[in-house]
């Protein structure tokens, strides 16, 4: 963590809202994307990020200054998103699990003009989202930080408060579980389109 950020954290910890505001402004987008990956819904992601920042504000005293603020906030945001997802699933157990705010727009991967192909990607995205949300916390954090945020194993270990080997194993387990879900689905899709 650089000196300026550390100073912001210390000021926020002393109750300076302007210091916390700069943290909110710096991390809102990143946390929103993390929450969206869990929730697949823009408004729900905003709610989760709001919760995450409030939890962070209340827990600032417990933040270890040797850790990265970004990974600490990221982890809080994922937990908040998971809590929101659990609530939503309890309320709407039969609701579609597909992302709600894609609005039929292809994602970066599903750029095919073929609607059937888009549907396949959306289906995969929905299953991937469900699987990630159901992973144990350490594995979920590890795969999201590694795959989507490009964090190194060392950074993931730091975020998890674990050894690098434990972080590596968490990535492995997450990847194996995701492949177990996505692999057969992709196989079936390939069979259907063959």
């Amino acid at each position: 963590m650089d000196a300026a950020e550390l100073e912001r954290v210390r000021r926020a910890r002393r109750g300076d809202p302007e210091a916390f505001r700069s943290i909110v402004e710096a991390y809102s987008q990143r946390l929103w994307r993390a929450a969206f990956r869990i929730l697949g819904d823009a408004a729900a992601a905003e709610d989760a990020v709001q919760d995450a920042f409030l939890r962070a504000w209340r827990a600032l005293d417990r933040f270890d200054e040797r850790a990265e603020l970004s990974t600490w906030l990221y982890r809080i945001a994922m937990n908040a998103a998971i809590d929101h997802r659990r609530e939503r699933n309890r309320r709407e157990p039969f609701s579609a699990a597909l992302p709600e705010d894609f609005n039929g727009q292809p994602t970066s991967r599903s750029t095919s003009p073929d609607p059937a192909q888009d549907a396949v990607w959306r289906d995969l995205a929905g299953r991937a989202q469900e699987t990630i949300a159901a992973l144990p916390e350490a594995e979920r954090t590890a795969i999201l930080l590694r795959h989507f945020e490009g964090c190194s194993i060392a950074e993931i270990a730091n975020a998890l408060g674990a050894t690098e080997n434990a972080a590596k194993q968490a990535v492995f387990r997450a990847v194996h579980k995701l492949r177990a879900v996505l692999g057969p689905l992709m196989e079936v899709r390939r069979g259907e389109s063959a």
Partner: peptide, 14 residues
């Protein structure tokens, strides 16, 4: 290929 499927989770812009 299987890990590329995760990229379908790329979120839209807020």
């Amino acid at each position: 290929r299987e890990l590329a499927a995760l990229d379908a989770l790329a979120p839209p812009e807020p």
